[in-house]
Amino acid sequence: MEPDRTIEDEASAGISGIRRVPSRSIDNPARRGLEFAMAPAKRAVSPSRARRSLATNPVSAQQRAEPHCPEPWRPKPDPSRHRRHDHDRRAGSRGTNTSSAGETGMVKQITYTALPGLPLVEPGDPLSDIVLRGVAEAGLTLADGDIIVVAQKIVSKSENRYRDLGDVVPGKRAVELSAQTGKDPRMIEAILMESSAVVRARPGVIVVEHRLGFVMANAGIDESNIPHFDGRQMVLLLPEDPDASAARLKAALDAACGASVGVVVNDSFGRPWRNGVVGVALGSAGLCSLASMIGTPDLFGRALRITEVAIGDELAAAASLLMGQGAERCPVIHVRGWKSSGSHTPAAALVRPRASDMFR
């Protein structure tokens, strides 16, 4: 049986309270040979005394090789990493859309707030008054650079873009497409009246090119979340000119609050090759909806050659998460923290021209 011994190599290991214990006193084989006790630190032992102690109480090479809990490993500072990080910030500051927080190394943040307590919108209602009421209910004050994202549906309602299908007489083309798609021929006629071309048609689906250039299902005509007056079958069309609608709302908000805000008119679009709908910007005012990054260097100094960022669509898509698609009743979203530079471009700039469309 091995007698108790003390290993006095604290000077080299930097650990106090380590002592050798008999193997039979520890059941776990992985722990045999060392016991770590919370003992007061002993006075420092000189290296010469430690060597004399080891000569008197020899320890096997295997035991000497056992770990003595060194200081935890920490990576050495890499100056090049800091240089790359600085380059990231410098590259970001040259981009078209960069917040000042990025330039100072602070965390970037954009806040989306669904405005509460909004009433159902009726034809002729001034949207600016409804938005300002919601801003006050949320405890906010409009400031320069804030963005208001409004659902297309309340814009169309305020502009009285309703159509009664009972007043629609389907033509020959509408009847043919009705047989092909299984849709109401009056609905098909209303779609054709808002479209410049039919892109695809099959059972349950008709995709068209809207007169404003949007490629979308049903020309954006909707039957959900609208009243059906006196039992009539009503549908709701897109705004006549979404960019103009956004500009009017911006002008009214700017005049009321004394600040320059941006406005995005948001609608839900399906996408080729992807399931589900996302928000897109039908109209905008007071912000850069399409930002060109061409010529901007990437992390390694290579100039971007074709990258354009659909800022309007990205703002709209994030707002859609709060708006919802059903009975959420959150048609207006306040956005704060997005810093847009460059010239203001309308949402019409987001529509790809037919000449550059590879799939039509």
Score class of each variant (00 low, 15 high):
3 P>G: 11
8 E>C: 14
10 E>S: 15
11 A>W: 14
11 A>P: 05
12 S>M: 12
14 G>M: 08
16 S>I: 06
20 R>G: 05
25 S>C: 07
30 A>M: 12
31 R>G: 07
37 A>V: 14
39 A>V: 14
40 P>I: 09
42 K>F: 10
49 R>E: 15
50 A>S: 10
51 R>I: 14
51 R>T: 15
52 R>I: 13
52 R>D: 12
57 N>H: 15
61 A>V: 12
62 Q>I: 11
66 E>A: 15
71 E>L: 14
79 P>Q: 03
81 R>Q: 14
83 R>K: 12
84 R>S: 09
84 R>I: 09
85 H>K: 11
87 H>Q: 15
90 R>E: 15
91 A>K: 10
92 G>S: 13
93 S>W: 13
103 E>C: 10
104 T>R: 14
106 M>E: 14
107 V>C: 11
110 I>Q: 11
110 I>N: 11
118 L>M: 03
120 L>M: 12
121 V>L: 06
131 V>K: 08
133 R>D: 14
138 A>W: 03
140 L>V: 03
142 L>G: 02
147 I>M: 09
148 I>E: 00
149 V>P: 02
150 V>N: 03
154 I>F: 04
156 S>M: 06
160 N>E: 09
161 R>Q: 14
165 L>S: 06
168 V>K: 08
169 V>K: 15
172 K>N: 13
176 E>G: 05
186 R>W: 08
188 I>P: 02
188 I>G: 00
189 E>T: 08
189 E>C: 09
196 S>E: 12
197 A>R: 02
202 R>S: 09
203 P>S: 09
205 V>C: 01
225 N>P: 00
229 F>G: 02
231 G>H: 07
231 G>T: 09
232 R>Q: 12
234 M>W: 07
235 V>Y: 06
239 P>R: 01
240 E>N: 06
240 E>V: 08
243 D>N: 11
248 R>S: 07
251 A>M: 07
256 A>L: 03
265 V>D: 01
267 D>N: 09
270 G>S: 07
278 V>L: 11
280 V>W: 00
281 A>Q: 05
286 G>R: 09
291 A>K: 12
297 P>G: 04
315 L>K: 05
316 A>N: 03
318 A>Q: 12
326 G>I: 02
328 E>H: 00
332 V>G: 01
341 S>D: 11
344 H>S: 13
345 T>K: 14
348 A>E: 08
352 R>E: 00
353 P>M: 05
353 P>I: 04
355 A>G: 09
357 D>L: 01
